[in-house]
Design a protein around this nucleic acid. Structure first.
Length: 699
RNA sequence: GCCUCGGUAGCUCAGUUGGAUAGAGCAACGGUUUUCUAAACCGUGGGUCAGGGGUUCGAAUCCCUUCCGGGGUACCA
């Protein structure tokens, strides 16, 4: 409907003798409660017309109806000019554009984009957080393909480092020769178990030492510590504060405490006994309902309580912080950590035994990951491994020093000063010449560009790394890399559980494989409850349940804007009704069944009459290519997902409103309706594939 | 402390470059099937768009500020 803009510009030129930019003409869809399909917001034009909004709208409306064939009527509501467009215009568009075989397909734009996603660590199985990453990365790749890009999907596997050594060491120590084969465990699960075991044993060792240090004043463990004095003074301070905590009494005004009722006193008792953190006591007070108080009174009580609690909370925080510092130092001095460090060193030196174990265990993990990837339906064109890239970037550091972008401190460490850009000073190379995280990312970025010479590069990584990528891209820009401006961090929010984030320590991690399996099971149960697949062969059933289960999961994760964190409640299964994947899949299957029965063939027709719902459908279908463009430009499948839902919803309305299509007389009306059905199915199918979801023919 | 991202119905989420009376789904309640798949459709109730101030003809959207939550914060990756 771009013609409306140019025609309106013309109208303004004729009426008010002024040329205006396109941006002045603000066109939107007419709201359902008014007549028309397109609405011009005339407020900005009143500055030119020097007339009231109503008068301006009327004048432009009159001009457009008189001069533009496809604009048949207009009405004015306040400053809004609602235009009725001729049905013939939409029908022509539908017949010539929407029904064309290449509708919604973008030709190659000649640009290459790399999408890096997944990037797992090889010490743990994939969990829900990875699932969001994988689905997002895959979908964005498909989206950009659909928009005309040449896409390279890349997985940069973090297969080396101390965390891998932890699994290896634990397996060596306590593994008894377990393998995926002799245990029947998936390789990634087996290796993950040993990582967890290492952390458990480490924790035991640390807490033993901590007891020793505190009770027996045995500081030998810190003999090799870099900053021995500081750590010992922290221990002394810690003991002091612990003593102080024992003598600090809760002196809150008994009256104000009583106002909160007996529960409040219990909270305080619990905290005094050390069974509850003081900072949680404050939160507990928030939860008490005291309906008989006025808001003012509540606020005052809250202030009073917080005032009394503050010394306790402050003391508690100081103690916890000290304890953390001390245990961190102890950790680095433990037997287990030292052994793991030694192993890492051996790995770096290419020690045969260590490297061979590393290879074996990584193979186990890859075999496990491949199963998960296959079940998720994601794939990659190229794998990079950090074991090959971790030494990269030192050349870039030299380059930066030569160009004067980096500087060297007295101790020999290399830095970049980004304070002028509102960031900090950032270390890029340690004094001993070893890399930090960003060193290798600098080098890897360069290598990836050398390998593929892409125009754009997208990193699908969680938002906890926003700062890292900001710095990374800025450094590359300052180094004068022409391709740096094509780098983009597709940052997404964490997946939260009802009680906060997933914590492996608390066993609340939602395992990817288990999640997929439970979705498929739920799909089976729901489908069989409906009795829809009784006549399906077993093979088809299995495939269908997988499609529906994964359809529900993928749609659930992708319909939410990437940057927003999203909430997943494992206790409630993901819905299959309403705004869900299965609803859209169902709509597709419904249409496919209809078309099969109708012996449908695509031909353009001109029906004598078009119903409002049919007009709505033509409009919505025509929007598809634009929706691809919007989603691709925003690197966000979410808007596409919502469009597909709108389309499915509208189709179901249409399906209920029109008389039974199959029973209609052969002719233009029937053909037209079937055309609408066919294109709806096509778009749902294509769009859902971009989301990584297969729409079944029957369900 | 500083930086950053969020806060929209009981719950999960939409809401375009600022545009009309802020929309869906779930949950609740009521209705629709002799007829193309009821995983559907139609209806009812439900809102201080976190609070306050500002810019504007017009603010959920832009600016300032406060509160709440997540994340980051110089040698972990």
């Amino acid at each position: 409907m771009n013609f409306i803009i140019t025609e309106t510009q013309q109208a303004i030129l004729e009426l008010y003798k002024e040329e205006v930019a396109e941006s002045v003409i603000n066109i939107q869809e007419t709201r359902k409660e008014f007549e028309g399909q397109a609405t011009i917001v005339v407020f900005p034009i009143t500055k030119i017309s020097k007339k009231s909004p109503e008068q301006t709208a009327t004048e432009i409306g009159e001009y457009l109806v008189a001069h533009v064939e496809d604009i048949t009527k207009f009405n004015v509501v306040k400053g809004f000019l609602n235009l009725s467009i001729a049905e013939s215009y939409f029908l022509k568009q539908f017949n010539e554009e929407v029904l064309a075989p290449d509708f919604g397909l973008y030709p190659s734009n000649g640009k290459k984009v790399m999408v890096e996603y997944s990037s797992p660590n090889t010490n743990k199985p994939l969990h829900l957080g990875h699932v969001r990453n994988n689905l997002l990365g895959y979908s964005v790749s498909e989206l950009l393909k659909a928009y005309g890009y040449d896409v390279v999907k890349v997985n940069l596997v973090n297969d080396r480092g101390i965390h891998i050594c932890k699994s290896m060491l634990a397996w060596q120590e306590w593994g008894n020769g377990e393998t995926p084969e002799n245990t029947g465990l998936k390789g990634d699960k087996l290796v993950g178990n040993y990582y967890v075991l290492f952390e458990k044993k480490l924790k035991e060792e640390v807490s033993n030492i901590f007891e020793n240090v505190i009770v027996k004043n045995d500081y030998d463990i810190f003999f090799n510590s870099k900053d021995k004095e500081s750590i010992i003074s922290k221990i002394i301070k810690y003991k002091e504060l612990e003593l102080k905590k024992g003598t600090l009494n809760f002196n809150a005004d008994k009256n104000s405490l009583e106002d909160f009722g007996f529960r409040a006193e219990i909270f305080v008792e619990e905290a005094t006994d050390g069974n509850k953190l003081w900072k949680n006591v404050s939160k507990c007070f928030d939860e008490i309902e005291y309906a008989h108080f006025s808001d003012k009174q509540k606020e005052k009580n809250k202030r009073d309580i917080d005032y009394f609690l503050k010394p306790f909370i402050d003391l508690e925080e100081a103690i916890l912080k000290l304890k953390e510092d001390i245990t961190d130092e102890i950790k680095s001095q433990t037997f287990l950590m030292k052994k793991a460090q030694q192993m890492l060193l051996k790995w770096e030196q290419g020690d045969e035994e260590v490297v061979s174990l590393w290879k074996t265990m990584n193979e186990w993990v890859y075999a496990g990951f491949n199963i998960t990837y296959k079940n998720l339906g994601v794939d990659f064109d190229k794998f990079y491994y950090e074991s090959n890239t971790y030494l990269l970037g030192k050349g870039t550091v030299d380059e930066g020093l030569a160009k004067g972008v980096f500087f060297k401190k007295e101790d020999g460490s290399v830095w970049i000063d980004l304070t002028a850009d509102g960031l900090d000073q950032k270390l890029v190379l340690r004094a001993d010449g070893t890399s930090v995280y960003i060193t290798q990312d600098l080098g890897t970025a360069e290598m990836k560009h050398d390998d593929f010479n892409m125009d754009e590069s997208i990193y699908v990584v969680g938002n906890e790394q926003d700062y890292h990528f900001k710095v990374l891209f800025l450094i590359l820009e300052k180094l004068g890399k022409s391709w740096a401006k094509g780098l983009y961090h597709l940052s997404y929010g964490m997946v939260d559980l009802p009680n906060g984030k997933m914590k492996s320590r608390e066993g609340t991690v939602v395992d990817a494989d288990e999640l997929i399996e439970s979705m498929v099971t739920t799909a089976r149960e729901k489908t069989e409850e409906l009795g829809k697949t009784n006549d399906f062969p077993q093979e088809d059933k299995d495939e269908l349940y997988k499609n529906i289960g994964l359809g529900a999961l993928k749609y659930f994760l992708l319909k939410v804007e990437p940057k927003k964190r999203l909430l997943f409640n494992p206790a409630e299964s993901i819905d299959f009704q309403g705004n869900t994947g299965p609803f859209i899949q169902y709509t597709h299957a419904r249409i496919k069944s209809l078309l099969a029965k109708a012996n449908y063939e695509l031909t353009a027709t001109k029906p004598a009459e078009i119903l409002p719902v049919e007009l709505e459908m033509m409009l919505l279908l025509a929007k598809y290519p634009g929706e691809i463009a919007i989603a691709a430009k925003a690197y966000s499948p979410a808007s596409l997902a919502n469009y597909l839902y709108e389309l499915a919803k509208l189709f179901n309305k249409f399906y209920h409103e029109v008389p039974h299509i199959l029973k209609m007389e052969e002719g233009a009306e029937k053909q037209f309706r079937l055309n609408l059905c066919k294109k709806t199915a096509d778009i749902i199918y294509a769009g859902m594939l971009i989301l990584g979801i297969t729409s079944p023919e029957r369900m």
